[in-house]
Nucleic acid binder design. Structure first.
Lengths: 214, 214
DNA sequence: CTATCTATTTATAAGGT
DNA sequence: TACCTTATAAATAGATA
């Protein structure tokens, strides 16, 4: 429904993809709103941009747990967004494995709690409270996980940069030792090229999947 | 975009509302699919019909936590459905308040875990595992909550039945004692009618809102 | 990037089968 | 009930500011 028909495949041109994203996203959310009004039903639409931003529609009349879940989800991503800014300037990931014991203990207590016989003796109110608190814990856990992922990415990209510099230096040294047969030609330095490709992969893949893993 | 423009408000005619629901729902999902393809982004659309049926679109390329959350959500509601059948034949809710201590302890350990300084020393893998386990715990908690709600409803409906029987007996006794002015007429026994209405409300309202509270 | 402007395509309301 | 038809409303692709 424009000047001409378009193929149903990924739009390759970045800027027109962005424009289409903006237009169609608002169109989708408008349609969702109309559907919920005209037909008096609950509708939720979530759209994640490739940069991890969340655009959502949830009709307000649904005070259902669905909207609560989605709101929580939104909150967690909002928190992540702030975390991502902070994470860049954080020092490299500590990865001390000493405290895993604590994690195991927590998990065990959760499992004990949910599987033990005392489960039968709790009241509805207790479960509603527990539900809220578990959901909050889950949000916080996810936020921390994303933070760690961003830190990993930062560390890896630093390492990549250092390796590239080192490679350049080594190439220069090799060229000097041999005697400059040709100027720096990337094609005949297979090993170094492979390393660069590997480094790129480590750097870019987490970025592509990260918004999905929150 | 039809033969004529329509007002943006709930369609009152039931059958044309149903037709519009069907058409616009599929339109919305088509648009969501197109957006996800053209712009290479993750999109989720959830539509709940008034009869509780869920129509969804989640673009398949996202093995994301979003679809996982929604799948979990679906699973938990499916599990709840089975629980509802079993819950009717369960005995009345125990509501022993003795074990709340355990609940508080669990919550505290979760909070301690997420707020304490040892949080900084855990690795990414630990948080991914913790996330899964918290999500599972959340699903189980929600299932148990729904079960308890259904049990409450069952108990209330039992009580209602017993109260009605008792009322009938009392009416008969009163009629016999006074001397049978008229045969059992419901209209002039205002108090009993009020009780019946109340009992009905307690029974039917939770049923109507329950799917939203899962 | 954001907003407007139209020629077109697309969605769909009303009606028919 | 569910699926066609078609006139019309709405969305939007591409261009332009």
């Amino acid at each position: 429904m424009g000047r001409r028909k378009i193929e149903m495949k990924r739009i390759e041109d970045k800027s027109s993809r962005q424009v289409t994203f903006s237009k169609r996203r608002s169109g989708l959310i408008k349609k969702a709103r109309e559907l919920s009004i005209l037909c008096d039903v609950d509708v939720a639409v979530l759209v994640f941009s490739n940069r991890g931003r969340l655009y959502e529609f949830v009709n307000s009349s649904s005070s259902s747990s669905l909207s609560q879940i989605l709101k929580r989800y939104q909150d967690s991503t909002a928190a992540d967004g702030k975390a991502s800014i902070a994470a860049v300037e954080t020092e490299s990931s500590p990865s001390s494995c000493a405290e895993v014991q604590t994690c195991g203990e927590l998990v065990k207590s959760v499992e004990r709690y949910l599987e033990g016989p005392e489960l039968e003796n709790l009241r509805l109110e207790d479960f509603m409270r527990l539900e809220r608190q578990l959901a909050d814990a889950l949000v916080q856990t996810r936020t921390r996980k994303t933070q760690l992922m961003l830190e990993s990415i930062g560390t890896l990209s630093e390492q990549e940069k250092l390796l590239k510099q080192e490679n350049e230096q080594l190439k220069d040294e090799v060229a000097n030792l041999i005697g400059i047969p040709k100027s720096r030609n990337h094609k005949d330095l297979g090993v170094n090229n492979l390393m660069e490709v590997d480094a790129d992969r480590q750097y870019s893949q987490p970025l592509r999947t990260l918004p999905l893993l929150r």
